[in-house]
């Protein structure tokens, strides 16, 4: 199992203001699997994704990433897990506007200690893979939404993480562009045995899933391989 979430509970705030975002969630995702997390707004999808991505600590429960227990790791150790294991894709793309397309990818490679000619070479390969080789020198502001998300995918792939976590990656895109992005993600999941978790509430995305998990009020309310229902 690439990701194992066992009995995870997450509460925000304290006292009367406490919000129980997740309640005893169990979920495992295997290598090469493309899992969709669905559910109404406020149901806890982003919270669960953040916990799987080691950027949020559960209130209780355990999380294992590639077999390693991460719940007990310190604030200093967690960034290393994210760096080595996980690539993120965001609804708002989160590209660095002052960097060119290629530099956005090189920055991620640099973080992983890949520099100079090697990072340049790898960034070209990654851009090739998402079909944006000719945009290497462009500024992010000059790209369309779909192109920006492709750059973000290339950046998430930099350094070959085993896990890609995407929060509403198509929400800011039109239907055709969104489907192209999901196509790309699916291709990636299968080509190198990557684990991909996509949060979405877009039903048109369902045909791309290997498995669909629905959350309601912080609890898993259903899961199954059946596609396209809901």
């Amino acid at each position: 199992m690439m990701i194992e979430v066992c009995g995870v509970t997450k509460s925000y705030g304290a006292g009367d203001a406490t919000v129980h975002a997740l309640n005893r969630v169990d979920l495992s995702v295997s290598a090469g699997e493309m899992l969709f997390l669905m559910g109404p707004s406020g149901s806890g999808k982003t919270t669960l994704l953040s916990i799987m991505g080691c950027i949020l600590r559960p209130t209780s429960g355990a999380v294992r990433i590639a077999g390693q227990e991460v719940t007990g790791l310190s604030e200093r150790q967690l960034p290393r897990i994210r760096l080595e294991q996980i690539g993120f894709i965001f609804q708002g793309f989160n590209l660095f506007p002052a960097l060119t397309v290629r530099e956005n990818i090189e920055l991620a490679l640099n973080l992983k200690g890949i520099r100079g000619n090697e990072s340049r070479r790898r960034s070209e390969v990654l851009l090739e893979r998402v079909g944006l080789r000719d945009k290497a020198g462009q500024w992010p502001t000059n790209l369309s939404g779909g192109q920006k998300q492709r750059v973000a995918i290339a950046r998430a792939l930099a350094g070959e993480p085993g896990i890609i976590l995407a929060d509403e990656p198509t929400a800011a895109l039109d239907g055709t562009t969104g489907r192209a992005i999901l196509d790309l993600l699916r291709e990636l999941a299968h080509e190198k045995g990557r684990t991909i978790v996509v949060v979405t509430h877009d039903n048109r995305a369902l045909p791309y899933a290997d498995r669909i998990v629905t959350i309601e009020d912080g609890q898993i309310s259903g899961q199954g391989p059946e596609k396209g229902d809901g």
């Binding site: 991505g53 950027i55 200093r76 960034p79 290393r80 897990i81 994210r82 760096l83 080595e84 996980i86 993120f88 965001f90 708002g92 989160n94 660095f96 991620a108 973080l111 992983k112």
Partner: peptide
């Protein structure tokens, strides 16, 4: 701030 947050999510240390 969002960029710094993104860097953190990407695994950059505070030192970076």
């Amino acid at each position: 701030l969002r960029e710094y947050g993104t860097l953190k999510a990407m695994g950059a240390s505070n030192g970076y």
